[in-house]
Nucleic acid binder design. Structure first.
Lengths: 117, 117
DNA sequence: TCGACATATGAGCAAGCGTTCAGATGTCGC
DNA sequence: GCGACATCTGAACGCTTGCTCATATGTCGA
C-alpha cells in the first residue's frame, strides 16, 4: 500500500460529473446496433430514419429511440425536410473515437496523425 | 428512401465481429467506477489492487473483477511481485480515447495534436 | 379536409451487467 | 509447516438499458 500515491491519484481525479458524462459518451458507443447506426452515418453521410433502419436492421421505432439519445449528446444532428428527418454526425470526435477504437482492437500502434483514410 | 445509399452503406459496413469487439472496448469505458479506475492508473502510473480499490472507492473484489475484464481486452497489464499485483495501462489508445471523450463533452473542437494536459 | 405515410414518444418487459458475499489460491514471516 | 494477508474466482441478487407494441404528432397528396 502506498498512501501518498493514493492521495495524489485522488487529487488528480476529475470531477465526478465529468467522469459520469465521459462514461455516458462511451456508453453510447458500447451497443453494436447503435455502433452500426453511427458507422452507417459515417460512411453514408446523411440519411433519413427509414434508411438508417434498413442499414442497421432494426425497426424504425428502435432507431428513433437511439437517435434521440445520440442527439441529446450532440453525436448526431437532424435536418427536417417535410415529413422526412435526415440525420448526420454532428461532431468529428466520433470519427476519431472509432478510428482509435479500431486501432486498439487490431493492435496497431498509435500514429500521431491518427490512422484513418 | 434511397435504396442505393442503403446498399452502399451496407457494403461499407465492417465485419459484424469487428463491430462487436469495437462496442466491447467502448463498453469497458462506459462504467464510471471502471473509468475512475482507469484514470487513476493514468495519473498514478502503476498501483496495486488495494490502492486502486482505495482510489476508486470500491471493494477489492469488485476492483479485481473489473481489472480482469480490462486485462482480457489489453487495457491494463499486471506485474506480480510476491503477493502484490501491480497494474498499469497496457496501451496508449486508452489515453487518447479519454482525451477525445473529454474534448467532446467540453465541446472543444478537435485539434490535430489532440488537446489534453 | 381527409387519409396515408414518416417520425416521435411512452409504457412494459426481457436480458445484460456490476455489485456483493463467500470461499479458493498463493505468498510471506515466524 | 502454520497463520496472516493480498488477490482471485464463482454464484446470486438488483439495477440499468434497449427492445417492441401501441399511440401521438405532423406533413403531404388528392
Amino acid at each position: 500500500m502506498d498512501p501518498e500515491r493514493v492521495a495524489s491519484a485522488l487529487a488528480a481525479m476529475p470531477a465526478p460529473e465529468s467522469i459520469e458524462e465521459l462514461a455516458q459518451i462511451f456508453g453510447l458507443l458500447s451497443d453494436p446496433p447503435r455502433m452500426r447506426l453511427i458507422i452507417a452515418l459515417l460512411r453514408g453521410g446523411e440519411m433519413c430514419v427509414c434508411d438508417i433502419a434498413a442499414v442497421s436492421g432494426h425497426r424504425e421505432s428502435a432507431v428513433s429511440h437511439a437517435l434521440r439519445l445520440l442527439r441529446a449528446h450532440h453525436v448526431v444532428r437532424v435536418r427536417r425536410s417535410g415529413r422526412l428527418a435526415y440525420y448526420r454526425l454532428d461532431d468529428s470526435h466520433v470519427r476519431m473515437l472509432l478510428d482509435l477504437g479500431l486501432s486498439h482492437i487490431t493492435h496497431v500502434p498509435v500514429a500521431h496523425s491518427s490512422a484513418a483514410h
